[in-house]
Nucleic acid binder design. Structure first.
Length: 471
DNA sequence: AAAAAAG
């Protein structure tokens, strides 16, 4: 299969040639003909599969055929970063067909707001938006969507999880009934099905690609640790290699902030979460994408979709609450067939969460022994307060990052251990006392200082020779 | 149970 078989307009095909796009990914191969036909579509596909190109290429082709000049397509995304990124990718393709796209999202201190208003006045065929700001614009009559032909919902499951259901219905009320609706979702829970009935026409085409799978190029492993050991272990891991691009995920904004404060003393890191100013978010993301920043600590705001080429290591400082989030976090690495590493910290309370993750991805992830000199972490198969639990899922092991691998521990089936009743690390333990000392330090101002050299604009991806697996 | 998104 080759892109040329879709019979795109010559300008679009030339663009694809110029960008080095030859073979469509599976989701592109399945979705593009359906969208070209004009049918509504529900596509179950994960990030990293080339989703953006899958929906935008056929849409661009249709706009090019119609001559453009009118607002034609609305793309909705759950986070601002995702909206920005989708817009940039669209611009990369749209350039070749003389079509324009603008991003619409909140935050930004009025500056971004002004830019967005100006862009809207100039007009564009495609708008990529987060729901809140778009509704504000619609309500204020600043944007008209009555010429719209295509509605695309990206990460629909996430948007519903985030409580956007009502917002989406509000937006849809502003749209013509006679339109094509394209829904992408990483998962297909009943909630999405019910919801899609409200937005899509009677007989949408459904396509589904492998879901809940982590990329093959990712070496996954985990440590059983006490919370007090996590920070030190993070430092240890970061020292093992001269990593160029690492994301550390923590489960709350407060955890992200406190880990940031602790690590920034001797490592150049930034924190990424929704409490930051939008300009800071964009600057940090830009630095990270440009490799000016090597280590980023973030909440799940950056777990989905964010495409940074060449992330070598993902550390799950906290076990993700939602098994789907594990797949998404880990999916930040090993993109576009590259290699990557994912290490998850599991504390005593997170064991059941991790079991659910292993069930979702259908394999057991190797539990590594803590490095030399570290006190023993919690045991996996039992808790201090309950009877030892059997761990049924003794499936095949993943290949290990054998750096700290203790074969004896990795291979044996978990069983109650001599130390299993130790609830916390003994107070004589060095790590424990050191960690506690850091954790009771007074809060610092969460505002981040920026030096002027980091004020550069995001890199334009327009002419980048990016592969078609970005989304 | 927490994350994000409109001020």
């Amino acid at each position: 299969m080759n892109f040329s078989e879709f019979n795109f307009e010559s300008s679009l095909q030339e663009g694809l040639d110029a960008m080095g796009f030859e073979k469509p990914t599976p989701v592109q191969e399945q979705a593009i003909p359906v969208i070209l036909e004009g049918k509504d579509i529900i596509a179950c596909a994960q990030t990293g599969t080339g989703k953006t190109a899958a929906f935008i290429l056929p849409v661009l082709n249709k706009i090019a055929q119609s001559g453009g000049g009118k607002l034609d397509t609305l793309v909705l995304a759950p986070t601002r970063e995702l909206a920005i990124q989708i817009d940039q990718q669209i611009q990369g393709f749209a350039y070749f067909v003389g079509i324009s796209s603008i991003p619409i999202y909140g935050g930004g201190d009025g500056v971004i707001w002004e830019q967005q208003k100006r862009a809207l006045e100039q007009g564009a065929e495609i708008v990529v938006a987060t729901p809140g700001r778009l509704i504000a614009l619609l309500a204020g009559g600043k944007i008209k969507l009555d010429t719209l032909k295509h509605l695309i919902l990206d990460e629909a499951d996430r948007m519903l999880d985030m409580g956007f259901s009502d917002d989406l219905l509000t937006i849809v009320n502003y749209l013509p009934k006679d339109r094509q609706t394209i829904l992408f979702s990483a998962t297909m829970p009943p909630k999405i099905r019910t919801f899609s009935k409200k937005l899509l026409n009677n007989n949408p085409e459904e396509i589904s690609l492998a879901v809940g799978k982590t990329a093959e190029g990712v070496t996954q492993s985990a440590y059983l640790v006490y919370d007090a050991q996590k920070e030190d272990l993070t430092r240890h891991i970061l020292k093992q290699k001269d990593y160029e691009a690492v994301i550390i995920f923590a489960s709350t904004k407060e955890k992200v902030k406190s880990l940031y404060k602790a690590l920034k003393k001797d490592i150049e890191v930034e924190a990424f979460h929704s409490d930051l100013e939008q300009v800071e978010r964009e600057q940090i993301m830009s630095r990270f994408k440009n490799r000016a920043l090597k280590v980023l600590i973030g909440t799940d705001i950056i777990s989905r979709g964010i495409d940074v080429v060449g992330i070598e290591l993902v550390i799950n400082f906290d076990t993700p609450n939602d098994p789907e989030d594990y797949v998404h976090r880990v999916g930040r690495t090993a993109r576009a067939d590259s290699q990557g590493e994912a290490i998850t910290f599991i504390n005593d309370k997170d064991r059941h969460k991790f079991n659910r993750i292993e069930a979702l991805i259908g394999m057991e992830i190797e539990k590594l022994s803590l490095p030399e000199g570290y006190p023993e972490g919690p045991s996996y198969g039992s808790t201090a307060t309950s009877k030892p639990r059997h761990k049924g899922n003794s499936k095949h092991k993943t290949k290990g990052n054998s750096q700290y691998k203790n074969p004896e521990k990795a291979e044996r089936s978990p069983k109650p251990r001599a130390r299993q009743n130790v609830k916390e690390i003994p107070s004589s333990n060095n790590i424990e006392s050191k960690e506690q000392a850091t954790s009771i330090k007074p809060r610092q101002n969460p505002k981040i200082e920026r030096s002027p050299e980091f004020q550069e604009k995001p890199k334009n991806s327009k002419f980048g020779s990016r592969k078609n697996v970005i989304d």
